[in-house]
Design a binder for these strands. Structure first.
Length: 420
DNA sequence: TCTGGGGTCCTAGGACCC
DNA sequence: TCTGGGGTCCTAGGACCC
């Protein structure tokens, strides 16, 4: 069995470029929600030395000087482009696992007679032609090796965007592994890479050749599995259908600080409604809802308050009104006057499929599934927010800032590109 | 003075991913 | 002034049970 991993090159920037050719060849970054910090960089921006995660306000002067272009993130656009890309990719294998917004695995079982390097080039070409997005392709006998191959295809121009490990000699593979920092192995983050370095494991090759049992003892079973995966022993499952989420979070920084309870109530109501939509989309109900608030932790000069409170529902529910009632209850218990709150989050937990719900003896209010379904249908058909609870507020001053956002070219009539 | 052993469940915290 | 959002898995330790 072998796997392909296809990954969009600086995906968000590439999505912007599809509809705005002026961004081509220029240093571009896409910012996180609220225009907070850099989350995607074009290769030109990387060359300028722009680091991942830098706060935008620290970069403004630099951007002016170096003609760095910033875009607010436009998830309506990226989500839609992602769906199109995934649909094209699904035509290249019967088995697809969508791993994130910009990457998927394909199962390559039954492709033994194919030249996978050619096949990878064909994939790359079709996605570029049909969707307009540049991708790289990596092939390996485990997911971790496919990831490694993809990473190699990205970094080394001589591979022309496609790396098939199966085609390499043992020497060539060793050379590639030896020239890859252990930090760049999928599953090894900053903390573990530091500790691995300390015991003499610096490269992907060192890690592959280390003793799995020792690493399990010193680190965890996760690191052991990574070692085995690098050796070609598959330890990670291929999930074709996304399993339902075990927790659902809706969390946003406000456009402006909020100090009043009534405005927080509006925001928490809206956040809960958003989380509930996600919950119903996977036909689930939640048994526990947690609300949290946060002041700006960077403002050490200001009083800090980061409360969170979870409340159990008597009967698990997905009804927005039931969930909102609980959320507001939690909010009112935590809220304190005199703080500038910067962010709120609503988290749904104890999630189960709604068919499995246990009825109570004294059948309590569990909500009205039919009404919720109708609401979701209307909002899908006529656009988000067509029908909502009045308590979500009308003005919504706390909505996030997105000062450099592009139109929703593919998902809104108003954003439709015009051909001249 | 002396104070078992084994199992389960839950939670918090730490690590990782994009 | 301005620092994102949304997930997963694993482990250790405490509570509790017999």
């Amino acid at each position: 069995m072998s796997y392909a991993l296809i990954d969009g090159n600086c995906f968000y920037v590439s999505c912007e470029r599809v509809f705005n050719s002026k961004l081509e060849g220029k240093p571009v970054v896409v910012l996180s929600n609220n225009d907070g910090c850099v989350i995607t960089r074009s290769s030109e921006a990387k060359l300028l030395g722009v680091k991942m995660g830098v706060p935008w306000y620290q970069l403004k002067d630099f951007a002016k000087k170096h003609r760095l272009i910033a875009k607010s993130s436009n998830y309506a656009l990226y989500g839609d482009m992602s769906a199109r890309m995934m649909s094209v990719l699904s035509s290249f294998s019967p088995d697809q696992e969508i791993y994130s917004i910009d990457e998927c695995f394909l199962g390559m079982q039954g492709f033994a007679n194919y030249d996978l390097t050619d096949y990878g080039q064909a994939i790359k070409k079709k996605v570029k032609q049909w969707i307009g997005l540049p991708v790289c392709v990596g092939f390996g006998s485990t997911k971790t090796l496919a990831k490694f191959a993809n990473n190699t295809a990205k970094k080394r121009p001589e591979f022309r965007g496609v790396c098939n490990l199966g085609q390499l000699s043992a020497t060539e593979l060793n050379e590639l592994l030896a020239s890859t920092d252990v930090r760049d192995v999928w599953g090894i983050g900053y903390q573990w890479s530091k500790r691995l370095n300390a015991i003499g494991i610096a490269t992907a090759k060192d890690l592959r050749d280390a003793d799995p049992a020792t690493l399990r003892r010193k680190f965890s079973v996760v690191v052991e599995r990574t070692v085995l995966e690098l050796r070609g022993v598959a330890c990670l499952a291929f999930d074709e259908v996304a399993p339902p989420k075990k927790q659902i979070i809706f969390s946003r920084t406000f456009g402006e600080y909020i100090s009043s309870l009534s405005e927080l109530e509006e925001a928490v109501t809206a956040y809960t409604a958003n989380a509930a939509v996600k919950l119903r989309r996977q036909d689930s109900v939640a048994g526990l809802i947690q609300v949290s608030l946060r002041t700006n932790p960077f403002r050490e000069d200001q009083p800090q308050h980061q409360p969170h409170l979870g409340l159990q529902l008597v009967v698990p529910s997905s009804d927005t009104r039931v969930l909102v009632e609980m959320a507001l209850h939690a909010l009112r218990r935590m809220f304190k006057n005199g703080y500038a709150y910067q962010k709120a989050a609503v988290m749904l937990m104890d999630i189960s499929q709604d068919t499995a719900t246990q009825a109570t003896l004294f059948s309590c209010e569990t909500g009205n599934p039919a009404l919720m379904k109708t609401m979701d249908k209307i909002n899908t058909r006529w656009g988000k927010g067509t029908v909502k609870l009045a308590a979500e507020g009308v003005d919504q001053y706390w909505q996030m800032r997105r000062e450099m956002i592009s139109p929703s070219y593919t998902t809104s009539w108003n954003g439709l590109p015009v051909a001249r």
